[in-house]
């Protein structure tokens, strides 16, 4: 009985440590464009904003560059891949890291719901952020 309690205790502690470590490394905070730009370098964050009209540049190899704005500050975003419902002037969440003055997006979530659930979330976040 005692041995068993120790075993369960060890399992739970190992689990707790693994959970905490994974949580720490995989946490991706929501931040604003102004925060990112003021920091200069930020890794693994989600930034909410609006795609600035007439800022898009389409480069070869499916690379897309555009500006993202939170109403106060703008930043340059670069993304490799297809965005099937890309449009200027719509809210977007970009996930990735900011360095050398450019945000390198790993993921771009657009409000226009090509991906239904993600879009719904976006919508709510953008609304909230614009309020507060």
């Amino acid at each position: 009985m005692k041995k068993l309690s120790i075993l369960v205790g060890v399992v739970v502690i190992v689990f707790g440590i693994a959970l905490a470590m994974s949580f720490k490394s995989e946490l991706c905070p929501y931040v604003t464009v102004s925060y990112v730009v003021s920091k200069g370098e930020v890794r693994n964050v989600q930034v909410n904003g609006t795609i600035v009209p007439n800022s898009t540049k389409i480069l070869p190899n499916n690379t897309l560059m555009f500006n993202l704005s939170d109403g106060r500050t703008e930043m340059r975003v670069i993304y490799h891949g297809i965005l099937s419902h890309y449009q200027e002037g719509i809210p977007a969440v970009v996930v990735g890291s900011y360095y050398n003055g450019i945000f390198h997006a790993r993921e771009v979530l657009l409000k226009c719901p090509s991906k239904y659930k993600v879009a719904e979330e976006n919508y709510s976040t953008s609304k909230v952020l614009s309020k507060g």
Partner: peptide
Amino acid sequence: LVGTLTPLLMHASVTRSFYRHI
């Protein structure tokens, strides 16, 4: 539960890898 409630409790969310690792 931890992953799902993270956005409620702190201004952040966890990536898919968080779940997969555990």
